[in-house]
Design a protein around this nucleic acid. Structure first.
Lengths: 230, 230
DNA sequence: CTTGACACCGCACAGATGTTCTTGTATAAT
DNA sequence: ATTATACAAGAACATCTGTGCGGTGTCAAG
């Protein structure tokens, strides 16, 4: 199922419109927004989208259409759309969205964590976060911290770190790094020095690690830390 | 603002309809469902509801209406309605709830923050949290931390602390404390020693404060710390 | 070259839908 | 009684809006 640019822009507009107005756009609304002069072309593409089950449509009902977020998510299209998994009304009437982040397991000098295979369905716990705080929520996941090797960076044993999945990191960033030779994932500050990687704990009582760049792969970068005291 | 039975049933129907169809009902839809034979009567009542700001309406747009959950909640009407913001469907179909926490301002050795008067409608920012992590969410609020006086407790400048509103604290807990004589709220570890209160920063370069218990009032206890690195 | 699928355009039409006008019925205040 | 106000009905109207149909240009297969 591949979509034309036009169809993508239509989806984007529909999402945006619903987000803003709380009711769906008419065919002509869509046409104007997506620079489609003919209503029948809008209908034509709408039918396509409906065939792919990305939207639902009620025949002969004004503005009788809605997005199927489940399918959009499945198709990897939800991320680009306004008001993703569920659009909600904040207390002030403005619309905003929330999303869920899977807590995939523990990180430390502990067992390996297969971030790639652990998907949204194997996670045993979830965090719910406000979109205003994060971008690209579909790339986020969370881990519980075990050990105090990052204590000087104010990350304590038991904290939850939220990471954005990415393979590269800037020097000094706090990352989850997979160490090939040791078969484990660890939370450290990352420094690339020539063809060596230095993984530095933020606790002087733990040693730095120097490893060949080939043996280290970055699994994600810490974007947030959450601690429960109660 | 009191509503007629008819208006209540209209609200209920609109909520139910939107929940089910993802688009709003037409005037005639409402009429049929609420046993109103005339479209003008529906419009009449819709106008009333709009005057009370319980719904929003776009003139001359088919199905151009939406519920204002904030106002409905305020009026205590939201609970009876289908699809109220509090109830959501998780990906696995199970229901769970989330809630919002107002970010009321900054805390430090800074300006006073009137937690009592700052209610859910004056907050300029919100956090959204999963209920599974917190109990009694209605007593929660959040503050941004200014300054590094709690750095040794791993609370950094810029962090957001979530507090539970309470007047009492156990020794050693991290609290937001109002200091009468200085007209300010500050974040410190709390110790009651006789009729004196010791407020201790978690940073050796800041001094402890000893104050008469009468001059200190606890505004809340820190239950969580959130940090954004990105 | 012809054909057919595909994406697109314009337009006219009919059905869907909000609005307005007139009328009628209570109830409470004057 | 009279007036004002809230609530309701029905019909006519205007416009919003989805649908259908004829037509165009492109492109690859036959």
């Amino acid at each position: 199922m591949k979509l034309s640019e036009r169809q993508k822009s239509m989806l984007a507009f529909i999402a945006e419109f619903v987000e803003e107005n709380n009711y769906p756009p008419s065919i002509r609304d869509i046409g104007t927004a997506c620079s489609i002069s003919s209503t029948s072309v809008v209908k034509y593409n709408l039918t396509k989208l409906e065939r792919d089950k990305l939207i639902r449509r009620e025949k002969e009902v004004s503005r009788g259409l809605s997005l199927d977020w489940a399918r959009l998510q499945e198709a990897g299209l939800a991320a680009d759309l306004a008001g993703a998994p569920a659009a909600q009304q904040a207390a002030d009437g403005s619309a905003f969205t929330f999303f869920q982040v899977p807590v995939l397991g523990y990180i430390a000098a502990g067992e390996p964590i297969q971030v790639e295979t652990a998907d949204h369905y194997t996670a045993d716990e979830w965090l719910e976060l406000n979109e205003t705080l994060y971008r690209n929520p579909d790339q986020l996941y969370a881990l519980r911290v075990q050990g105090d090797s990052m204590i000087d960076a104010s990350v304590l044993d038991g904290d939850i770190v939220i990471l954005r999945h990415q393979e590269r990191a800037e020097n000094g960033e706090m990352v989850a790094a997979w160490i090939d030779t040791q078969n484990e994932t660890t939370l450290k500050h990352f420094f690339l020095e020539g063809d060596q990687v230095r993984l530095q704990p933020a606790n002087p009582s733990y040693p730095e690690m120097f490893l060949p760049a080939a043996e280290v792969s970055v699994k994600g970068k810490v974007v947030s830390v959450i601690r429960q005291l109660e």
